[in-house]
Every structure is written in structure tokens, then in C-alpha cells.
Design a protein around this nucleic acid. Structure first.
Length: 570
RNA sequence: GCACCCGUAGCUCAAUUGGAUAGAGCGCUUCCCUCCGAAGGAAGAGGUUGUGAGUUCGACCCUCGCCGGGUGCACCA
């Protein structure tokens, strides 16, 4: 049991003795170190309910609070805060427990759930660009964390492998294809076809009609068009896979839109016959008279020309997932602009009797220097592949300059870890709902609150251990003993790791983990400045080495949960 | 017109979900490498949290009204 939960259970016991609901007895790390190590606002919360004086209530709680083995006598401060200053011995014990725990103090969730995480979802025949970064990185990190806490996670890449763009691609393939370009860089060639046909259509209605015809033929199962479609999908996926490999991201499933094609018609018919949907203006749609926000916002599932829509596919997907996995939750990691769409689709899901916890994990847009949204359709898109290559190149320049001792291949490997880490961290550290300004400078800066800063903290610890080995310094006692303020601060920060991952999953916000790791690295640097490690001796040296060792494990694990690797040297 | 999201230091962003004197990074001003890696550390300047009310012991956070920005709203995804 962690120190924090230990204090909490003691507090709960005291609360019940004074007739307060024990559930109120929450203990949190102190907001300000001057007031101690942990605090509880329980007296103030209870005072509100019981309409009593919070300070008096706190004082009476203290009479029953038995924590003398864990901390100094608790005090009442301010409006009724109860403050705890943990004993060095108890703190040492707690850190030692984390040190010898394979999970580093993280306890698994008591009731594991089956969670489907739907993320990344690039469109075939289009390059992945900055717009896909957030979904991909956020979804990957959330999946890792959920899995780490014991949930059963299914990651699914719901790629856009079916849609109106294929009319243009097929027409282009038949009339304008450059096979050499297709072999060299398939997506680039597919995009070129798409754009050129798009331009042709503008000026020539006849071509527009032919393009439409190609799409209809594809949808009706025309062999030639299907084959072209299959190749386009395969070629695109090939390129996506290179990027996922580079990013270290894998999916359990890759069930794209095309997978659900056959289910769309029957689904629409069923919804009609169940009177969930009805015809209106030639289209099939679902109305929500009982939901005020959606009263005038029907959800269309079949066009008047018989074609199906985004929502139809999503509903079919939802149904399939229910049947196959019986999930407790489904997380859709897509941009905030799609909020209305998911509100509708979820509402339809409930009409269909789906009780699963469906969640839209929305995120804000990435903005350009002009503070305007980077649009997908128009203007220049920054391609993800190019962006990652540039990040790695810039990292390589810095690595070569800072540490020329490394061999060429080591430098390249380190640069990959640093460059990719920098990109991922720059995205994950933001609150997911806020828009943020994309900046090469910021993303690739190796100063301040960045991945390289955290990686560097890890590397420093590695180098301490390397030096210890060279000098024949071993760890004697194997246990940690806390006494200095900087050691206390670091130890307390290490203990927080057990809580932070659960907090991240509450609201699907990895930025809290980023913040935590940054503060951990910060605490370590303070410790490193204030407390000589190898230069001290005996038990102190041994203890400090161990403390540094735990720090490095938490850093590595925490970064790993963000999908970020650590080098041993840099 | 309706709905949703966002307004916090010069800039980019946090704030343990209602807690104590609102914190970081970049930039700016001073220091610290004969010392376990300076991709670092110490100190400083910088704020009426868009605005006006309300709720209570206590509000960046909750309620309502304004102002400003963004996004979405029947046959694209």
C-alpha cells in the first residue's frame, strides 16, 4: 500500500469516529511544500455538509488520527487544512517499496475493462500529415497507459480506404498513371492523380460524369476497378507502415471503412424497420426530438441517391465491435470539429440499445504561424514523414556537436530516439483540447520542457552508473535512506508515479504524465546539484545511487508510456 | 441564427477538477564548469486569470449575462 493510501485509510478511520463519511477522507500531495508533504481538505468538505466550523472539525479529527508511525503530529492550518509531514523513516520505507516493486508503485485497476481505442485513421491515397499527429500519438499513448494499468486494450486503425476519392483515383490510374513514379513513391503519385483529375473535372462536366461512373462501378464490384482499388490501398498502407514502424506504433486491428461495406445496406434497412430511422426528403435519417441539442440536427445514414455516409460506417463499426469484443468502452481519438458527429452517432447507438461507454477523445487543432488551422484539403500540408525526417536530422546535428565520441551509427540511433521523442512530447505535453501553434523551433528545441531534457536526465543517471562501474563502486546496502531536503523532494515525487497514471486515464490526458515526468527530472536535477552521489561514501553513497536508480526506472517507464524511448548515451 | 471549444506573464502553455501567496518553458537581467555531463543549476523582473455579476469559509475552475477568437450545423469524411 502506498504511503498516500496508507495515510488515507488512517484518516478514514478517524473520520468515521467523528461521524463523517470516510469517503470524504482524500489525501493528496501537498500543494505547497512549505505546508508539509501531504494534505487533506476533508474537514473543510465535511464542514460544508454539516455546517460546522472547519477548523474545529479538523481539530477534533486530529484527536482520533493515529499516524505517529508515519509522520510528525499533523497540524491544522488555514481554513481547515490538515497537513502531514512524513517521517524520514516512513518516506525511506515507501521509496524502498517502490524500488523493489516491478511496477514501481503502480497498482493495476481493480476492475479491468475491455477498451477499444480507435485512432490514427489516415486516408488511403493521401499522405499522412501533421493533422494525423495528434490522433496517432495521443491514441498510442493512451493505449499504452490503459494496457499498463491492466485494461484489455484493442487498438484499431479505422483507415479511410473507401470513399468518393476513389472515383478520381481510378480515373487517373486508367488515364494518367506514371508507373515509375508509382513505384518510387506511391502516395505521391496517387495524390498527383487525385489532384489532376480534380482539376480536369472543374473544366469538363463530361469527365466529372465519367469519374462518377468509375466510382459507381467500384461500388458495384467491377473487377478491374476493384483491383486498382486493392493496389492503391496496399501501396498506401505500405507507406503508412513505414511511418508506424519509425514511430514504434502497432495496431491490433486494421479494419478500415471498406470492411463494413456489406453491412451498410442491411443496417439502414434494419434501422428503418425498427423505426429508429425514417425517410425524409429522399434520404434516410434519424431524428432526435428528445435531445434538445440535436433537435434540429438529424443524422443522415443514406443519401437520396442511395449512397451511404460517414455516420453509417461508424454505426456499422460500432455494431461489429459490440458483437466481436463486447467492449466496456470505445475511445474515438479524433479532432474536436467532429464533436457533433459523435454526439449524433452515440445517440443513435443508444437508440440501438448499445450501453457501452462511448467516448470521443477530442483534441484541438494544430495551427500555423498565422494562427489559422492547417487545413487538410487546401494549401500546403506538412507531411508527417518529412516532418519526422527533419526532426531526426536536426537531432543528429546536435548529437554530433555535443557528443562526438559516439560512433556514426550510435549517433544516428540516438538522433532517432531524440528527434521522434521531441515531436511526440511536444504534442503530448499540451492539454489535448487546446489548439496549439505548430513550431519547428519549439518542437525541436532541446532546451526546457522537452523530451530531450527528460532523456538527458535519464542519460545522466546512466553515466553515473557507468562511472561507478569503472571506478569499482558498487551498491552496498541496497536500501535507500532519505534525509536531505533534495532527497525528500525527489522521493516524494517518485511516490506520485503510483497515482498519476490513474489520473491520466480519468480524462484521457497524457499531458499530466508529461508534467509529472518533467517535475521528476527537475527534482532529480536539484538532488543532483545538492547531493553528491559518487563523491559521498558508504551507506549514503549507496542510498543515493539507489535513489538515482529508481528515478531512472520511473523516467524510462513513464516515457515509454508516452511512446518515447531513452538512449543510454547522448 | 443555434451548438460546442478556447480567452491565464511579451510569446507558447500548465495548474493534482472548488483549496493555501496562480506555476513552467522560450525571451530578457545577473551569477555558477580546476566540481558525478552546462541539453544543467542559482537568483531577478514580468499577472486585476477577457469582462460584469452570482453561488460560499474559499472561484482560473461552478451559474448567468456580455466582449473577442475558433470550429461545426441534411445528402464529404
Amino acid at each position: 500500500m502506498s504511503l498516500q493510501s496508507l495515510l488515507q485509510s488512517r484518516l478514514a478511520a478517524a473520520l468515521s469516529k467523528v461521524g463523517i463519511d470516510a469517503a470524504i477522507g482524500i489525501v493528496t500531495p501537498a500543494a505547497d511544500a512549505r505546508f508539509g508533504d501531504f494534505q487533506s481538505n476533508a474537514a473543510m468538505v465535511a464542514a460544508k455538509v454539516q455546517k460546522k466550523n472547519p477548523r474545529e472539525l479538523a481539530t477534533s479529527i486530529l484527536k482520533y488520527l493515529q499516524v505517529e508511525d508515519l509522520c510528525e503530529p499533523p497540524t491544522v492550518a488555514g481554513a481547515g487544512f490538515i497537513n502531514f509531514k512524513v517521517l524520514d523513516s516512513a518516506l525511506s520505507d515507501a521509496v524502498n517499496t517502490v524500488r523493489s516493486d516491478a511496477c514501481l508503485g503502480v497498482s493495476p485497476v481493480p476492475n479491468p475493462k475491455t477498451i477499444i481505442v480507435d485512432f490514427s485513421s489516415p486516408n488511403v491515397a493521401k499522405p499522412m500529415h501533421v493533422g494525423h499527429i495528434r490522433s496517432t500519438i495521443l491514441g498510442d499513448s493512451l493505449s499504452r497507459i490503459a494496457r499498463h494499468l491492466g485494461h484489455c486494450v484493442v487498438t484499431d486503425n479505422h483507415i479511410g480506404d473507401w470513399g468518393t476519392q476513389f472515383g478520381k483515383v481510378i480515373y487517373g490510374w486508367k488515364h494518367l498513371l506514371n508507373k515509375e513514379s508509382l513505384e518510387m513513391s506511391p502516395i505521391e503519385e496517387l495524390v498527383r492523380l487525385y489532384r489532376e483529375v480534380n482539376a480536369l473535372e472543374e473544366h469538363d462536366p463530361a469527365i466529372k460524369e465519367t469519374v462518377r461512373g468509375e466510382l459507381v462501378k467500384l461500388q458495384q464490384g467491377d473487377a478491374e476497378n476493384l483491383e486498382i482499388w486493392r493496389q492503391a490501398v496496399a501501396l498506401s498502407w505500405n507507406e503508412f507502415e513505414h511511418l508506424y514502424d519509425l514511430l514504434g506504433i502497432t495496431f491490433d486491428e486494421r479494419l478500415g471503412e471498406s470492411f463494413y461495406n456489406d453491412a451498410l445496406g442491411p443496417l439502414a434497412d434494419r434501422l428503418l424497420s425498427q423505426q429508429i430511422a425514417k425517410e425524409s426528403e429522399g434520404a434516410v435519417c434519424i431524428f432526435f426530438p428528445d435531445i434538445p441539442a440535436l433537435e434540429d440536427k438529424p443524422c443522415l445514414i443514406r443519401k437520396s441517391d442511395g449512397g451511404f455516409l460517414y455516420a453509417t460506417t461508424d454505426l456499422a463499426t460500432m455494431e461489429y465491435r459490440e458483437k466481436r469484443w463486447k467492449p466496456d468502452a470505445v475511445w474515438y481519438v479524433t479532432g474536436a470539429p467532429q464533436q457533433l458527429h459523435f454526439e449524433q452517432v452515440f445517440a443513435v447507438g443508444r437508440k440501438m440499445g448499445i450501453a457501452t461507454d462511448l467516448r470521443h477523445i477530442a483534441f484541438g487543432s494544430i495551427l500555423g504561424d498565422d494562427r489559422k488551422m492547417m487545413k487538410t484539403r487546401s494549401g500546403e500540408n506538412v507531411e508527417l514523414g518529412g516532418l519526422l525526417r527533419e526532426a531526426i536530422e536536426r537531432a543528429l546535428t546536435v548529437v554530433a556537436e555535443k557528443n562526438s565520441n559516439l560512433s556514426k551509427s550510435e549517433q544516428e540511433e540516438v538522433a532517432r530516439t531524440i528527434g521522434l521523442g521531441a515531436v511526440k512530447y511536444a504534442d503530448l505535453m499540451q492539454h489535448r483540447l487546446t489548439d496549439y501553434v505548430f513550431s519547428w523551433e519549439k518542437m525541436l528545441s532541446f532546451q526546457g520542457n522537452t523530451a530531450p531534457y527528460l532523456q538527458n536526465a535519464y542519460v545522466r543517471i546512466c553515466s553515473i552508473f557507468r562511472k561507478a562501474e569503472v571506478e569499482g563502486i558498487g551498491i552496498q546496502s541496497g536500501s535507500i535512506s532519505i534525509s536531505e531536503p533534495a532527497e525528500r523532494a525527489l522521493a516524494l515525487q517518485i511516490l506520485k508515479f503510483g497515482e498519476i497514471l490513474h489520473a491520466v486515464l480519468e480524462d484521457q490526458r497524457p499531458n499530466l504524465l508529461c508534467l509529472y515526468l518533467y517535475e521528476l527530472a527537475d527534482s532529480f536535477h536539484h538532488f543532483y546539484e545538492a547531493c553528491p552521489i559518487l563523491k559521498s561514501e558508504g551507506g549514503i553513497r549507496s542510498s543515493r545511487m539507489e535513489l538515482a536508480g529508481v528515478t531512472s526506472k520511473v523516467l524510462k517507464t513513464g516515457l515509454g508510456l508516452l511512446g518515447i524511448g531513452v538512449p543510454e548515451r547522448m
